[in-house]
Design a protein around this nucleic acid. Sequence first.
DNA 1: TATGAAAGGCCGTGAAC
DNA 2: GTTCACGGCCTTTCATA
Lengths: 163, 163
Amino acid sequence: MDADQLDLSILAELSTNARISQIELSNRMGLSSTAIARRQRALEDDGYIKGYQAMLDLSRFGLNTTVLVRVTLDSQSDEALKLFEMGIVKCPSVIRCFLMSGSDDYLLIVLARDIEDFERIHRTELSPLPRVSRIQSNFAIREIVNRAVPPIVFGKPGRSRRR
Amino acid sequence: MDADQLDLSILAELSTNARISQIELSNRMGLSSTAIARRQRALEDDGYIKGYQAMLDLSRFGLNTTVLVRVTLDSQSDEALKLFEMGIVKCPSVIRCFLMSGSDDYLLIVLARDIEDFERIHRTELSPLPRVSRIQSNFAIREIVNRAVPPIVFGKPGRSRRR
DNA sequence: TATGAAAGGCCGTGAAC
DNA sequence: GTTCACGGCCTTTCATA
């Protein structure tokens, strides 16, 4: 299946308003609600839509501090990477972790309540991870852009996007 | 309003399954669907829930490459920061942008189709931004953790979280 | 202040075309 | 892709502790 422009419009709407009713959607798209429902279901079945999630205001839970952390291991063996990764997935304050090219570094995004809280996370969650040799932390002082989906997916300015 | 343990359970469920019905939720929570609906509405009105979004499989759109980009400006004046930030919010391939402490660096997360596509983004979206003096790019070769909400919010292992 | 039960309208679903 | 009918869900109201 190949998503056409109408499918992209549906995805654009659902990506910011996942609980919109079929009827409301169909009014905006100028199509019957049944047709919309079928297309939405097809987008789910074909894996374009992985699921639906509530967006929470994390500052409402006291999580006001974002920290970018670079971790260097003491070895680049598969065993070391595997051990580290098995540990990092269990760290409750880590929301993203990338293995970066060009070095043996991982980049983490960590959420903390404040700087003291990050000190605790550093000590109790990150430092004890296996094979860690160096941890460098940088605090984000402001967030300018935060979106889950780049608008280029919906054909905003970008170029053609057919398979 | 202060979220109690039942509210946290509702949030935990909605954060991974935003389109669950009230009745299904009420069966799992052991509460009437009316009570669940009222609590959910209160969580929305009080700002705990900012909205609901569809999770898209970006690889289905050909976006298989994540790049972490550090940008240094040629000046640290408020004017320079403001100009740069007005430009970066319009870049369709940038999904996150942080102003980092300790330097005049911004950290961006950019999504591209592949390395050639990133070269295009670098040339057409990033380099033309005002006041940019240096751009360093690192490719993510694997993603180990990716979640929107740290499990600590729902009281998984962490410590007390009352106001 | 928060819950539970029941009525009514709206929405989602599936058949037929 | 559309229409239509049915069944279920969501919403509101009201009674209760």
